[in-house]
Design a protein around this nucleic acid. Structure first.
Lengths: 261, 261
DNA sequence: CGAACCCTTGATACGCTTCAACAAGAGTGG
DNA sequence: CCACTCTTGTTGAAGCGTATCAAGGGTTCG
């Protein structure tokens, strides 16, 4: 197993200076919100991201727009609560909202984070039950809420809207299935590498973190400490290069091999 | 933490005879398929389970029935493969089908099992991508396959079918969200207890396993060995009573408390 | 400047897996 | 009917992977 090889190469603790030089955090996260939060309006791009590729007709968009209510939330503000009854579809237009559960000591336990524009909770509204989770804004964000009561007539009038929602839900199912599979079958290192590879769209293999490392750790279901150690392992193995919130994949092939094994 | 208390009470290894007597397997699993596999027909009950509570109109049912193709599969037979393109909705009418992934050595790794009547894969068909997982019959089973090409006209004609599918998908999302949450936040003991409580519908607290213990272990994402040990722990603590494939919950309140902690 | 945060690192503990051995049916064929 | 094998579940010992706790350094901001 390659993991042990990496661990072996780590065993003799290298001089601190070298590691510090490699792991210096001169790249900040401040750039993650360069664009100020958008105005309280739903743009065509927003609808495209929410409803899928062939754009809806102007009539449909207009009706949806008249129905939806935009709302601005402050960082750490609660978007909704687990127990709260659901009567509307909720989407994140801009910003990041975390899904998880509120601990007893007012501490939010993050499980999944949604980057706008995307649906935040599309499933609970149809089930009568409340949202299954709590939702908290991870930063300034703009939400779109569409009351179900008003939506039903629209779905009758334009059935293809229903189909768009169906496809969005199907996508959510696929994503959740993948997450579940990863949790059941992969260890922490494999989950991290999978995440890195999925975020390195460009072949140059540069990943700029859009979130705090502790949030990334929460998404991978590990502790921040473990994430730090894993990054250091991969770095020592020469597979990646970490500079603050910027990670460069030096050997994508080897990383892919590690996930398979 | 109660876990340690239970462990402590376990530490002095009790005489083998006593434990054997408690854990004797005189209750077999043979009764799990008393009713012979149903004929190759979709009954009204099947449609009710698949499409939700207010029954569809006779016209709609007739059209769906004309479109769907029933199929019988033998135990361990593959229902579909991960890579295989998806052009149909797949449901399990009767029997049990496992979702998971096929290992390199022809060994099936179970992740989730679907007891008929229920949808097996409702999401992939809408996405163009293949099924995300492999599916294998865990026993003799009857499937229903509805080709998407033929379904589309029906959805146009009767939009409320689309809505039923939407709700079924929403339910899947809720269930998967719960599973993910359990995997991220609960340890093995809590997952087991949660499962036991959810299966003990009747207040008398009797759970008759419908599956092999190794399949239950796979669903809980633990090894069969760990499951055996956990059951023994709970038994030693006087919380449950295990007799082969029949488990009796002796103290539901205490079990619930263990999950919360 | 101090306070609050974030990340990193080390030491240690614990949960779960892995490997190996064995007991108890269930099915099979002589 | 008994030996034989195959499968399932159980138990023990050892080891790996990750969490936890504690400490320290680097930034940012009041």
């Amino acid at each position: 197993m390659e993991t042990t090889a990496i661990n072996a190469s780590l065993k003799p603790p290298e001089p601190k200076l070298a590691s510090r030089a490699l792991l210096r955090s001169d790249v900040s996260l401040s750039s993650r919100r360069t664009v100020p939060i958008a105005e309280l309006r739903v743009s065509a791009e927003h609808w495209l991201a929410l409803m899928g590729c062939p754009a809806l007709s102007p009539n449909e968009l207009q009706a949806l727009e008249a129905l939806g209510r935009c709302r601005r939330v402050a960082p750490t503000e609660l978007v909704f609560r687990k127990t709260q009854a659901t009567e509307q579809l909720v989407a994140v237009l801009d910003g990041v909202v975390g899904l998880g559960s509120m601990g007893a000591n007012q501490q939010f336990h993050l499980e999944r984070s949604v980057h706008g524009p995307a649906w935040l909770d599309l499933s609970s509204a149809w089930m009568g039950t409340g949202h299954g989770q709590d939702a908290q804004a991870m930063g300034p964000a703009v939400l779109l809420e569409i009351p179900l009561s008003g939506l039903r007539p629209l779905l009758q009038r334009w059935p293809d809207i229903t189909e768009r929602l169906l496809m969005a839900l199907a996508q959510t199912v696929q994503k959740l299935t993948g997450t579940t599979h990863d949790l059941m079958a992969k260890d922490a290192q494999k989950r991290l590498i999978t995440w890195l590879l999925s975020r390195a769209a460009a072949p140059d293999g540069d990943v700029a973190l859009r979130e705090r490392k502790r949030e990334l750790a929460a998404q991978l279901a590990i502790t921040p400490e473990t994430l730090s150690r894993l990054l250091r392992q991969l770095m020592s193995a020469g597979l990646i290069e970490v500079r603050g919130y910027s990670i460069k994949l030096l050997n994508a092939a080897a990383l892919r091999a590690l996930v398979q094994a």
